[in-house]
Nucleic acid binder design. Structure first.
Lengths: 239, 239, 239, 239
DNA sequence: TATGAATGAGGCTTCATTCAT
DNA sequence: AATGAATGAAGCCTCATTCAT
């Protein structure tokens, strides 16, 4: 009875119960704020998200929710008011991260004239977000928690493809890599290692991302096994 | 964390005893099986180790021990008999993995004439072991659980340094990387991603390791931030 | 017993945290309720303590915590919320018992004019508390779990010494006994016997305590082996 | 759902299963050895009993059976061959203790001319056996494990009554105490205290038994509450 | 609305007992 | 006959989630 854990490694029970749907997911980024959301409530929400991200980076993606609530300085039930369950919270953190990467990638596209430089900038900026969790977002369901997550996902995918397309076009990027390769590799190289509270983790991630980028440049120094991982390959692989 | 017995008679006894046997752990590499270990028991032991590795690869390093026992087809207590606690089991799995990597690296050193090829071979072979757990082993205590782990650790470290030294000497490897860089990057790029039971994970790992290797070649295509991570940097980083 | 984290991510987190709150333990004797504690929570807490005492008396000090929780009519985790572990619960039960004995001893000191009568009254009153657990309290660490226990311990010790001192001074108490003798003997003669749920246990305890008291009177009817057990002898005997 | 634990506090399961009867209980003392019992087997049996007694004295009556087996230097299954379950082992230990006390009491009866001296000697000798477990034997079922336990029980009861009868007759022993009082008090005052590995425990027991004896002498220094506990009072109180 | 408290399921570990050499 | 190994049922503790203030 294999259980393909996803964002809810912690509780198996959740899978058994009827998902308590109907949670008022509120957009965290740009348009269409569903509910106006009182000022203090909004502040709480942001603090929870920030604490969650911080806690995950420090202790891994299985942090206790109470720990997150404590860091945010709110009661645990408040956390649940904003995010009906663990999965929801994590997804929103990922969305947040994703959106920030998207934003930076766009800036890179605008600011950098050299396509490979733009790509590099996006990759190295991603390292700053630390959680190698983009992968989850990418490989994870789109419609699960409303269209916002899907949108967020689409945004980062599209901008990544754009970056790659330009880099490919410029002839600086080896042709046998796809957006999937890039995103997965970023995820992995920035993933928090279990059992390590190594301070230099960030440094290492940057070093290794740089090496990876160097390996992406033309002329290709090797023949890659398998085929380029495209965006489509990252969809629906779960379960 | 001082434990004051007396009020917790329940669980104290075990702690008082000098731990019956220091786990009969027979060396997984060379020879010298410590304990004769009955035929069926030995089979169980191997099945548990195999199941553990498999389960960890599939579900992450936090798999329930009961799950591992179930996969191995033994009772939960049997698992405990062989490995007195979670830590012990994981350490033995890591040791097993480490030893196999060491073995392959040695073969690469012998068989390959080209130093960079030898390095590549070792790196790509590592991917086959999947668990990006080497990192733990490397950064983890040496004397804690007997000399076997220390030995295992030293072996993989030494062979890695040897590979790098030769590659550096041949001028094919960029000079600003150390054994720490290599091992950490391998760990990360082969780490099982939470939430993914993606079948092509192995393929991806190999692709990305190859790209990483390409980035390691001379001439250096960039200036790396920070300093080369050496082996010493991986030691004692815990706690 | 060094614990090396990293390989046991599962259970480690809790240990890392500085233990959320230092148990809201309101003083059981005088005043100064530390934490306001909601009405129902306070009720639960009292019920748990009462059930624990009852269960210990009936089944010995190794009763399952789940059993205690069941008797109290609360979930097992609720018990944990109030008392983070077995030790904590038992200590609070002991504290409660100790404080009651102290209180009664003080009343005896005030009310009784005859010093030996005061002593007798304290001893016989102790029997009513049943749990021969004072001994633990006495021989147990003082600073370990906060100052409250230390205080509770000191109180009962001091009042006992006072009672003995007066009885000695009056010439009614044989000189070769100390407070340690008294407290240990009380502990033993009121200890719940394993395997007995004998209803007359209390009666027996009182009978035997009375006989013991008679043996304490002057003139001494024998020469006691060994030396008088003083309070200091009861300290730090653990581990 | 109160469970009246007796000799098997440890496992509740045992109570659920059909008692695996038919164990070849062999007399440990005088007459009628059922099975000849090979020499080495007999030696094992004695070593197990001795280790059990020692372990119980040191660690309480809940020692792990494996611990006892280890002390005896035999495999755990060997222990089970001799004593089909925990209960059986404990009962035989008690029987052993009981028989030794009986023996000493008889010697005291013969050797001492003064009846109270004889009583004292028996009481103080009992302290040497340490386990305050006689009580179990006394209050415990008689027919459970064959007639031998019943016999052992009867023997110690009878000799105790004889000692008391003579002491009463001599006018040295206060009249309001019975054999039950004596045996229970001995049990309690020699009971191993949980959480204490106090070396002076034996000293204390002797001191307190002596004080108790002094309290038993005439002239009575008080009026005892309740009635004298007779032997009949100790029977069938369980469950 | 926000929060402290309650809960039950589940994980890890232990141990009495049975099985297979 | 003796033993090492296996087992399943608890026990203790944790934590995601729900309730009641």
């Amino acid at each position: 009875m294999k259980t393909h854990h996803a964002l809810r490694t912690r509780s198996v029970r959740a899978a058994r119960r009827p998902r308590p749907r109907g949670s008022p997911v509120k957009s965290t980024t740009v348009g269409a704020t569903r509910a106006p959301l009182r000022a203090d409530a909004a502040r709480n929400r942001e603090r929870i998200l920030a604490s969650a991200r911080e806690a995950i980076v420090e202790q891994g993606h299985e942090v206790a929710l109470d720990e997150i609530a404590r860091r945010a300085g709110v009661g645990n039930a408040t956390l649940y008011r904003h995010f009906p369950d663990r999965e929801s919270l994590l997804l929103h953190v990922l969305m947040h991260v994703s959106d920030q990467i998207t934003e930076r990638a766009r800036q890179a596209l605008e600011a950098e004239t050299d396509p490979f430089e733009a790509l590099s900038r996006m990759v190295l900026d991603s390292a700053r977000e630390r959680i190698g969790g983009l992968c989850w977002l990418l490989s994870f369901a789109t419609e699960v928690d409303g269209p916002q997550l899907a949108a967020s996902r689409e945004r980062v995918l599209r901008v990544t493809e754009e970056l790659l397309a330009r880099a490919h076009a410029s002839g600086q990027l080896r042709p046998d890599v796809g957006a999937g390769d890039l995103l997965i590799a970023i995820s992995r190289l920035t993933l928090t290692l279990p059992g390590k509270t190594c301070v230099r983790d960030g440094d290492m991630a940057r070093r290794h991302l740089q090496i990876f980028l160097d390996g992406l440049r033309t002329p290709s120094r090797s023949q890659l096994p398998g085929e380029a991982i495209q965006l489509a390959d990252l969809k629906d692989e779960r379960h």
